[in-house]
Amino acid sequence: MSAPTNKGLLTIGDVARRTGLAVSAIRYYDDEGLVSARRTPGGKRMFIRSDIRRLSFILIAQKMGFSLEEIRTQLKQLPLERTPTKRDWEKISRGFRTHLDERIAMLERLRDRLDGCIGCGCLSLVACKLYNPGDRMAESGTGPRLVVQTSNNGA
Rank of each mutant, 00 (worst) to 15 (best):
A138G: 09
G119H: 02
P144F: 14
T19Q: 12
Y131P: 06
L68C: 10
E69K: 12
L100N: 00
R38W: 05
L9F: 10
R17S: 06
G13S: 10
T150L: 06
T19V: 02
Q62G: 00
I52S: 03
R18I: 15
K86T: 08
P4S: 14
P84G: 09
E69F: 06
A138F: 07
Y131Q: 11
D135R: 12
S36M: 11
R97Y: 09
L110G: 13
P4H: 06
F47P: 01
L59I: 06
S124N: 14
E108K: 13
K63W: 05
M1C: 07
S2K: 05
A127G: 11
S151Q: 02
I60H: 12
R94N: 07
I52N: 00
G116P: 15
S36H: 13
Q74I: 10
P133F: 01
R17A: 08
P144Q: 12
S36V: 10
E139D: 15
L130Y: 04
S124Y: 11
R49S: 12
K7Y: 08
S140F: 05
R49T: 05
T11G: 07
D30E: 13
R111E: 09
S2L: 15
S140W: 14
D101K: 04
F96D: 05
D31P: 01
A127K: 09
D51L: 08
A37H: 04
D115A: 05
S67F: 10
W89Y: 14
M1G: 13
T73M: 15
L21D: 03
M46R: 00
Y29W: 01
I52A: 03
A127N: 05
I48N: 03
E102P: 05
R27K: 07
D14F: 00
I118Q: 08
S24M: 06
T150V: 08
I104A: 12
G121L: 13
A3L: 04
W89D: 04
K7E: 01
T85D: 01
T5S: 06
Y28F: 10
C117H: 05
C122D: 01
R39H: 04
R97K: 14
P133K: 04
L68N: 12
L75W: 04
P41T: 01
A127S: 09
K63E: 14
T11A: 06
E102C: 07
G121H: 13
G13L: 12
P4D: 03
D14M: 03
R97T: 13
V15H: 00
L59G: 10
R53M: 01
K44I: 02
C128I: 08
E90M: 10
L59H: 12
